[in-house]
Amino acid sequence: MSGTTALPGTPCTAPRAGDPPMHRLQVRLPDQVPFAAGTFDTIGAMSRAAFPHRHTFYEIVHVTAGTGTHVVDLARWALHPPHLGLILPGQLHHWEDAHGLDGSVVLFTEDFLLDHPGDRDLLRRLGEHPWLTLDGPTHARTGRLMAELIEEYGHGADGFATVLRSLLHVLLIRTARLGGPGTHAPPPGRPAAVAEEFAGLLARTGAEGRTVRECAEFIGVTPGYLAEAVRAATGRTPGALLREARAREAQRLLVGTGLSIRQVAARVGFDDPAYFCRFFRRETGRSPGDFRKHHDKHHDRRDESIEGGARSA
């Protein structure tokens, strides 16, 4: 996935004026694996960022200590460790009034999932329940596995990338077990692959005004086949998921930026602000202005990037 990693010193600015900062995973050399693991301290201060921002990569956090609130999009979770959390690429997130925050962090891009491509769909499903409070035994097992990931990444011995992918796969499978049967990956097959590709397309561009037909053409199937595949995998229609993605992105922009309602409408693919307002009210039950007033909070935004546990060669 081009553009998801950057060499140290490359600024990670907001992609367009008024947008929240977009953080990329930094690596020391272009040919190194797009992965990093460490503690909150070794990953760096940006792992505790208190202002809304997005990532181009996945982040898994194992919180072992701290108070405050973790905010992802519009969901808020008070910290009562231990927790295991997942932040998906493109989600707006930050730590609010956090004190004593500690634990382990794993960062990786979608390109890292070479050995286990089914993990992409599993991550999407885990993202539906991204915050878990762990019991004692599960906390201990998770801590051991996170420590293995950090140790393997730090040593960088021969074959370390393969070992990291295997350990990450185990972590995702074990996390899926905690979330119940609905978080398990669907059985292999062409319809499931089409639904997975649609979900990935939705995550990347679903808020930019694509139609169902355009999505089907991009994937290389008919609109009817896309509808069948998506309904079989999710129980919903592609159109409903597209509308949900556009509404969710509009919510993120209204809460996390100072863009005007007209600008937000344009960002999510509406030429007519009045039509956008009707769409938004239909999807959320509130007008964009009311929604922003209800969630309005001031957060400082900084032009910084995550030093993703990068190592020298």
Rank of each mutant, 00 (worst) to 15 (best):
P30Q: 04
A17F: 02
D272S: 08
I173R: 15
G9H: 10
G179W: 00
P288L: 06
R311P: 01
E249N: 08
G66F: 03
C12D: 15
P137W: 03
T142K: 06
M22A: 13
I87Q: 13
L86S: 09
A147W: 02
T109Q: 10
G308W: 03
R174L: 04
Y225L: 06
L172V: 01
L134K: 10
I43A: 14
S104R: 14
T4S: 13
R125V: 00
F160D: 09
A207P: 03
E59S: 15
H94P: 03
H99S: 13
H23M: 10
F112W: 05
P187Q: 08
E148A: 12
T133P: 03
G100Y: 06
V71H: 11
L254M: 08
R248S: 10
T234S: 14
P89L: 05
T142N: 11
D19W: 12
P8L: 11
G285S: 06
L145C: 04
L107P: 13
Y58L: 07
G256Y: 04
P238W: 03
R243K: 13
W131L: 15
E217H: 06
A310Q: 11
F280S: 06
E249P: 01
G180C: 02
G258I: 00
W131M: 15
V194Q: 06
R286M: 12
P34M: 01
R165S: 09
E228V: 01
T10E: 15
D158H: 14
A310T: 05
R204E: 13
H294Q: 14
A50G: 13
K293C: 05
R48K: 14
D19V: 00
L107T: 01
T257L: 08
P21I: 02
T69D: 13
S287Y: 02
L226E: 08
W77N: 14
G220A: 02
P223R: 09
L259H: 11
L164R: 04
D119H: 11
L167Q: 08
R246E: 03
R236H: 07
F108K: 09
P187C: 03
Y275K: 15
F35Y: 08
V170I: 00
P81I: 00
